[in-house]
């Protein structure tokens, strides 16, 4: 279905500030409105109830921020891709900002299938940096890190250790983690719980903060930013270059 007739485009966006409380689904709706406000020639699915051809990547938890969200949209006609970030941001609520766009190769694999690693910055409220550092070291060394959580409304126990690739703590107690999405993507909230369990400190009044900083597509030994992973062969090289500039 992807890229069958149209012009697929991948955009990167940030979700920061108050708008972090908006759910993944409602962000999708805001994007659909923004696409209409920008009057872009979005392709629609055929059938009884046509839907715009927009597909989102990994969901971001309600309350979490991100500098690296992605979505793919299929257009019926070619558009000025480098102009898209400003055009789309204009129709978005404050805190949602499109920060890059790239024309995508037809039949590029979907974001959900191709993203293999995700990086986050975590900030644990009301914990001394030394305590956080000790918990992070323990987490890095642990063979398993089981966390009680819910999946699809049911209580389950998951082990986040298999997807934890690395964890670092800065002098201020800020945690940087990289999680693998394979075999199953651990959620940053689960990692926060694991760290708090190791530190022996229950969540208090303060809000633990989560910021997604990167998503990566790892393929044949290369580590690619999703905007650069599957460029359209015919795309003017300038467009991709500009998209990449904005990304780092």
């Amino acid at each position: 279905m992807r890229g069958d007739a149209g012009y697929p485009v991948r955009v990167r966006f940030a979700k920061q500030g108050k708008v972090r409380f908006v759910s993944h689904r409602d962000v999708a709706r805001a994007f659909e409105r923004s696409l209409r406000i920008a009057q872009l020639p979005v392709a629609f699915t055929a059938g009884f109830a046509p839907r715009p051809k927009v597909s989102f990547g990994l969901a971001l938890g309600v309350g979490h921020e991100s500098r690296a969200e992605y979505l793919d949209v299929e257009l019926r006609d070619p558009v000025d891709v480098p102009a898209l970030p400003a055009l789309l941001t204009d129709g978005m609520p404050e805190g949602l900002a499109v920060t890059g766009a790239a024309a995508l190769a037809p039949r590029a694999p979907a974001l959900q299938e191709s993203v293999t690693a995700v990086a986050y910055e975590l900030r644990l409220a009301d914990l001394a940096p030394a305590v956080v550092d000790a918990a992070a070291s323990a987490a890095a060394d642990a063979a398993n890190l089981t966390v009680a959580t819910t999946r699809k409304g049911k209580p389950v126990v998951v082990d986040v250790a298999p997807s934890l690739r690395r964890v670092d703590v800065d002098a201020a107690g800020g945690v940087t983690v990289e999680l693998s999405t394979r075999p199953r993507a651990a959620r940053p909230g689960e990692l926060l719980t694991a760290l708090r369990t190791l530190a022996g400190v229950e969540p208090g009044e303060g809000e633990d903060r989560v910021l997604r900083t990167h998503q990566w597509i790892e393929r044949d030994g290369a580590r690619l930013e999703p905007l650069a992973a599957d460029p359209a062969p015919s795309a003017p090289s300038g467009a991709d270059a500009r998209a990449l500039e904005a990304c780092v």
Partner: peptide, 20 residues
């Protein structure tokens, strides 16, 4: 209010920021 919103259903009800 902000830290309370992580503990409630549909927190975006309380943030405002609507277009208009």
């Amino acid at each position: 209010i902000e830290p309370l919103l992580t503990k409630v259903e549909k927190p975006a009800r309380y943030i405002g920021m609507e277009s208009g």
